[in-house]
Every structure is written in structure tokens, then in C-alpha cells.
Nucleic acid binder design. Structure first.
Lengths: 186, 186
DNA sequence: AATTTACGTCAGCCATATTGACTTAATTCT
DNA sequence: AGAATTAAGTCAATATGGCTGACGTAAATT
């Protein structure tokens, strides 16, 4: 748990004993690349997914199961095809994971009432409980991360994250997210 | 590329034809779980890593290679052991990826001058160029994401991301990141 | 001299993704 | 009514990036 610590960090290996790098003049202007933000994102996302990972490991589930559970919990009655679109994976990849979740009584499939080809997906009571537990873990981390930030920071972060997303994907994602906050342009 | 769009999103599957969920009263108080933030983080991080992924795919490299390249670029002369600590993977996992990067002339290993057991890692000129290219891609996305946000937002986001990280891992990560911005407590 | 450290390697396993091909059933289109 | 499309599932093979355990070698430390 929380094993994100580095082993040694001995003498902070800054150009340790490397006298002969070509000095790589950077005439191309690598003015102040945002290394810190890149790395903060990396470690933040890692720990963010780490909380649920620990819980899911007890069920022999992985992150793939979490993603499926999350989006089914959020979109009860979703079609398999739509779920594939959201997750951006193939039918075959989803198949395995979904089967395991169904077998474990986490997710339930029901025949569509209008279109009987569909196997609409729902969380079971158990699945719903697990989904809520996992989201609450993430909520705690998010709340802790917002402590001490100026007023309006949460909204700022929401807009930042939205704008990180490919512009042409945003409309669909906004529909999916249906935030209680105002994420419209401007 | 930018295939993050969902296929259909037909009739926004909101409890489509599911009349008989136990209504899951949520007496446990699932008051306003932060689904939107969770999902924004998911999609934002996905697209953020997507840019480099596309470039790396041309070299037959994956995200694992990117992480190694990034941290070697950032910490020239880093020891293998320290890199393992940063990445949080095993020697064997790193071994494969690192070998490929060395064979491709992206990363260079030099014997430590004080401790001849060490194989200190450096990017080659080529590797440095690639690393810069990749980071610039991510920079563009970050800059676009910051557009239109209020003054001080970048700092807010930095603090948010830092506070997302496990508290006991922060000191080491701060050392690693050595941001030009002030990320100290308070 | 003994122990520990740094690094590497062999071998095998697992999770999650991929592609391509194909089937079944149901719906929709002409 | 018949053809085409769609929804879902399946078989088989492959790739990536992790993992564990067991060893080996050289160099440094105690």
C-alpha cells in the first residue's frame, strides 16, 4: 500500500557524473517544457486509480472491471455497443471482463424490451454497492486534493480537465458526464 | 486518430427500460458522488497519453517506453535502481523495455565513475530529440487546456494534482519534479 | 573475508488489449 | 417478402507490459 516511495533517491541524480552530454543546445527552443505538470499528472492519476485497484484486487478484478462497472453504474440499461464506444475497446476485450462481472453477480443483462437483440446492462444490488464504494474512495481523494485551494478551484479544474479532452470528443463526453456544474463553452 | 467519439449514443440510455431496479435507496448517503470529476479525469488522462502514444507507435514503442524515456531525459545519469523506484515496476519489466531503447539508440548506458557497478542512464541525442518532441505534444495540450481559465489557475491545478498524490509519496515526488513553481505546503 | 548492493538474465505466468473471421437472432430497408 | 444491416457473442491467434522466483556476477561495504 502507498508504495509509491522511491527506494533511495541517493544523491539526487542530477547530471550525476555525466560531463560529456552533447549539451544538446536546444536551439529549437525547448523553452520551459512543463515537466512538472506532466509528472504531477502521471503520479496523481496513478494514485487516483490505485485506491480502487486495491479493493478490486480482493475480488480478483482489475482496472478493466472497474471501468465497466463504473460506466454501467452510471448508465443503467446501456447497450453493449454504446459501452464499447465509451471504453474505446473491442467487443472481444469487453466480452471476457463482462462475463466475469456477470458471473460474479455484479452486472446483470436484460433483453431490450423494444429491441430484443439488445442485452442491456445493469448493476445488481451488489454491483451498485461496490460501485458506490469505489467512487467514494475516489471522492475522498478528490476532496483531499481540493483542500486549501481558492474559491472556484473545483470549477477551474473541471474546465481544465474538459479542455484536456480532444475537442471533437467533448460533446459526447459532456452528454455522458451530465455534470451538475456548468461546463458549457465560455 | 481522435477516435474517442462514441458510436451512437442513441437515446441517451438513462434508465432506459429498467423499471425494476430496487431503487437502491442509498440510505448510506451517496450524496452527490463526484462522477463528473472522475470521468473527466479518465478521459483527460486518456487523451493526454494518446498524443505521445501515436508518435511512439511509429517506432514500435509503447507507453512503457515513453515513461522510461521521460524519466531518463529528466534525470540524466540516473541509476537503474532509482528508475525502478520511480516507475514502480520490477527489474525484469524494465529490462525488456530498456534493452529495446538502448538497441534503438534512444538511451545510453555508462559505467558509473565512482561505482563501477552502476549503469547510469542517459538519453542519446536522438533520444533527447524524441523526448522533447513528445513533451512538446503534451505541452500543447496542457496550454490549450489552460486557455480561458482565471488567473492563477495553473498554480491551482498544480496544487490540486500534488494533493491527489499519496501524502507520504509527495516529498520524493517533489524532489523529482523540482518545479519552477512553489509547491511547498500552504 | 563475508555480506550486501547493482545489475542482469532465464523461465514462466497473468491481465488486458488487439485483429480477423464467423454465427445467430432480430430489426430495418426496399 | 426478401435482403441488408445491426446487436451481440464466439473462436483463435497475437502483442504488450506487468508479475514472481531463482540465479549469477561484479563491485563495494562492513
Amino acid at each position: 500500500m502507498a508504495d509509491v516511495n522511491f527506494k533511495n533517491t541517493p544523491s539526487s541524480p542530477l547530471r550525476e557524473n555525466g560531463p560529456d552530454l552533447p549539451d544538446s543546445g536546444e536551439a529549437t527552443g525547448d523553452d520551459a517544457l512543463p515537466y512538472d505538470l506532466v509528472e504531477l499528472l502521471f503520479f496523481a492519476y496513478r494514485d487516483f486509480t490505485g485506491d480502487p485497484d486495491e479493493v478490486l484486487a480482493k475480488f480478483e478484478f482489475g482496472r478493466a472491471h472497474h471501468r465497466v462497472l463504473h460506466f454501467v453504474e452510471r448508465n443503467p440499461g446501456i447497450m453493449v455497443t454504446d459501452l464499447l464506444g465509451i471504453l474505446g475497446i473491442t467487443k472481444q476485450s469487453l466480452g471476457r471482463v463482462l462475463k466475469q462481472l456477470v458471473d460474479a453477480g455484479i452486472i446483470e443483462q436484460r433483453e431490450g424490451s423494444h429491441d430484443r437483440r439488445q442485452r442491456l446492462l445493469y448493476t445488481t444490488e451488489t454491483g451498485h454497492g461496490l460501485a458506490v464504494d469505489l467512487t467514494r474512495l475516489q471522492q475522498k481523494r478528490l476532496e483531499r486534493a481540493l483542500i486549501g485551494l481558492p474559491d472556484g478551484s473545483e470549477e477551474t479544474i473541471r474546465r481544465f480537465l474538459l479542455q484536456m479532452i480532444d475537442p471533437d470528443a467533448r460533446p459526447d463526453i459532456l452528454k455522458l458526464i451530465r455534470s451538475s456544474f456548468d461546463l458549457r463553452d465560455r
